[in-house]
């Protein structure tokens, strides 16, 4: 009842508009009015609270997506890292082979191990080179660590290599320091066996064993391994010597096949 005097304003819309316009200008002139500041702070607190909820929901969604993306990225990088590590290791091996090829005064063919031999009686590996590449039977095979074995069979594209860890393998060898000659063979134990070294010869553990060069197959000086155990049999004439192979046969990947003596430039020109 007390506000009846306001009714004419509501009946005349332009009066009402003038009131609103006046009020608006009044508020603008007071800006920011002390009375409104409290209300504004309250409203802004509510808005902030609502925005906080929205933001946390959005952030959770985003972080879940980000997490999945990062997992994928991590997996991809791990694969890439593994590949790079393989390339690095291959590079190191090839580098060592390259050094060996410079040291060897022989003609050779580089090859990659592509499989294990299927013969029941022979421990062998298969190489990706064959007669087409100049590889022939009984050619020695080496890697950067030492002697691997010899070629026992050849096809145009592949070669089968009998490794030292074979019951039929016999290599004429020499103790590097004492220059004593012996035969390296394998009897199924973890180490090679060096036979026919007389008891009178002083042999120390760690002494290198190399090819003697007396056979027609292996050139002299190729490392076979090092002496790891020396014992004597009372009744025999020779020492029992165990040799750890220089080559890790479980990790063979790249090798060289020695195909002959290195030709001089004059020989090359003649051929």
């Amino acid at each position: 009842m007390r506000f009846h005097f306001l009714l004419p304003i509501f009946r005349k819309p332009h009066y009402l508009l003038l009131v609103y316009v006046g009020l608006s200008f009044f508020l603008m002139s007071l800006n920011p009015p002390a009375e409104l500041r409290g209300i504004r702070m309250g409203v802004l607190a509510l808005v902030e609270f609502w925005s906080g909820i929205q933001e946390s929901l959005t952030r959770r969604q985003v972080s879940r997506k980000e997490l999945e993306a990062l997992k994928e990225e991590n997996f991809r990088l791990q694969l890439s890292n593994q590949r790079l590590r393989e390339v690095l290791l291959e590079n190191i091996r090839l580098h060592r082979l390259l050094n060996l090829s410079r040291e060897l005064d022989v003609a050779y063919v580089s090859a990659r191990v592509i499989g294990l031999g299927t013969e029941r009686d022979v421990q062998s590996i298969i190489l990706n080179v064959g007669s087409r590449d100049g590889v022939g039977k009984n050619m020695p095979v080496v890697n950067a660590d030492g002697l691997v074995g010899k070629v026992i069979a050849v096809t145009p594209g592949q070669a089968v290599v009998q490794i030292l860890l074979d019951h039929n393998s016999l290599v004429s060898a020499r103790l590097q320091q004492s220059r004593e000659l012996g035969i390296v063979s394998w009897d199924g134990s973890p180490w090679l066996r060096l036979q026919y070294i007389p008891k009178s010869v002083a042999v120390s553990v760690g002494e290198p064993v190399v090819t003697s060069g007396l056979s027609n197959i292996y050139p002299p000086g190729l490392k076979i391994g090092v002496v790891v155990k020396v014992s004597e049999d009372r009744r025999g004439f020779f020492k029992n010597i165990r040799v750890k192979p220089a080559v890790d046969f479980n990790r063979l990947e790249e090798v060289f096949v020695i195909v002959g003596e290195k030709k001089t430039p004059a020989e090359k020109a003649a051929s």
């Binding site: 009402l16 608006s24 200008f25 603008m28 009015p33 409203v43 802004l44």
Partner: peptide
């Protein structure tokens, strides 16, 4: 005009703009 004034005023309070400008 009443709805405009009220809604504009609330909009002003919710935003950082000059209070009364939206109402006007």
């Amino acid at each position: 005009s009443t709805a405009g004034f009220v809604i504009g005023l609330i909009g002003d309070l919710l935003s950082a703009q000059l209070v009364g400008s939206g109402a006007l």
